[in-house]
Each structure stands twice: as C-alpha cells, then as structure tokens.
Design a protein around this nucleic acid. Structure first.
Lengths: 119, 119
DNA sequence: TCGTTGTATTAGTCTATTTAATACGTTTCT
DNA sequence: AGAAACGTATTAAATAGACTAATACAACGA
C-alpha cells in the first residue's frame, strides 16, 4: 500500500506520513477508511513497527487520522480528497517559488510565466 | 558572502554548493571571479574549513569552479548567468504552475502565495 | 623567504534515524 | 471468557552522515 525509498534523504516515517496524504489526494483512501495496522505496514515494508507507528503518531498529531487501541487508525475528514489535493498543490507551488527566488529569479519574470500559463 | 541555515536538513556543504550556483545565476559572481578562500568562508560562517573545502571540492568535481593550490578557486564558464541553471529554475516554476492549473487551482491563490514568498 | 591557498589525513564528536526486544491496556471476535 | 488484533510506551543499542579538531604538505605569488 505504501511506497518508500530507503536511499532517500527523507526519513522513512516522513515518507509514510506523506504517502497517506498522497493516497488521500488521489482518492485511493477516503475519510473513515481504515489504515493498515502498524505491524502490517512494518512487515510489508521490512521496517520496524516503531517507525510506522511514528508516522501514524504524527498524522494523528496533525489531525489527519484518529487512532484507538484495539480498533485501528482511520482517516479523518481533514484528509478529504479535495483538501489533500489543495495542500499538495499549494505546497509544491510554494516550493517552486521559493526555489526560484533563491536562485535570483525576478518576481516579474515569474508573474509573466504565470500569466502566460493562465492564458 | 554565503548564507547558511544551521537548522536546515540540507547539509552545510551542500548549502554552500548551492549558494555558489545561486550567486552565479543571479549575476552576483561571474565566470573568472575568485571565490573566498575556504579558510575565510569557514571563519566567516563559524564552520570547519573541511566543510567549506568539501563544498569547493564538489563544485570542482562538477566543473563549476577550478581550484589551484596557492592561487584560489575561480568560477568556470559553466556557471554563467544566462545558462542552464536559470532556465532549469524557470522551467521548474512553469511546470509547477501548469500542474496547479491542471488541478484547478485559482490564479489568484497562486498569486497570493507568490507575493507571500517575495515579501 | 614568507604568507596564502587548496588538499589530505586521521581521529573524534554529535545528532537523527532506525532497529530491537518487550510490555501493557483496550477492543473485537469467537 | 479467552484469544487475537491493535495502538502505545519504554529502554537500549546500532547505524550513518555531518561536522569538528588538529595537523601537515605542496604549490603559488609577492
């Protein structure tokens, strides 16, 4: 269900965290859906259950899932298809702007490109 | 001359590496220009000379600078203001805009984010 | 010659991440 | 009631990357 890259700089628990958000964005999982148990995630990916649990813990801290002992972890409404998509899009766009800014791109040039695309 | 963020996930040597590319992209430094000695960079930023040297070493491996003992390190033509680097950035930005557009993002929202970053 | 500079080496410290090995309490199912 | 499933917690250890420390050497230029 989840995909991780062991060679990536991004920690595994953070990749899992983002995987949940992405799956929600693409509609593969929806509010109310049950996520696989941490032990299953760990077994599937060949990682430690603690690592999977850490991802779930942070997702719950952000209100994206709710967990209860003995029952499992479930998506909240906060991760509906639309809101998750929006989050992904704006984050990606913001990163692109910051990157361009860091490399000395002029605001006017970016505005020009933006207008060009939206025409 | 260089700016680093000690709290960032990105290693210092890599930040320095990117700083050089960014300064070249924005025209602050040009091909042939001498870079500050590793010891000066280290002293200015309060880091170890080895860390600064590592950044220079990788820049030289990529052909962005050339170094010679006793003389210093200098920008090559590969890091000119109007070459690949800048186009890469604007292309990345254009892709982000098109992506956001494809997902139905409002132009006004993107403009808001852009202004927010450039403030 | 002397100061500057890039380069190299070896060792050590530090931090975040991940694993390991259990254990506990709650819920669900039979 | 009992067993399995599940989230949660704890403590310890291992691992890897980044960074520092302390030197040393050789080339270059004034």
């Amino acid at each position: 269900m989840f995909q991780i890259d062991f060679a990536a700089r991004e920690p595994i628990y953070e990749q899992l965290y983002n995987d949940v958000i992405k799956l929600a964005a693409s509609g593969v999982i929806k509010p109310g859906d049950k996520l696989p148990p941490v032990r299953v995630v760990a077994a599937d990916l060949g990682i430690n259950p603690n690592t999977a649990a850490k991802a779930y813990r942070e997702l719950e801290n952000e209100g994206y899932i709710y967990s209860s002992v003995g029952r499992g972890s479930f998506l909240t409404d906060k991760l509906s298809e639309n809101s998750a998509q929006k989050r992904l899009i704006t984050d990606a766009f913001r990163n692109a702007v910051m990157e361009a800014n860091a490399f000395g791109a002029e605001k006017e040039e970016l505005l020009r490109i933006l207008e060009e695309v939206y025409r």
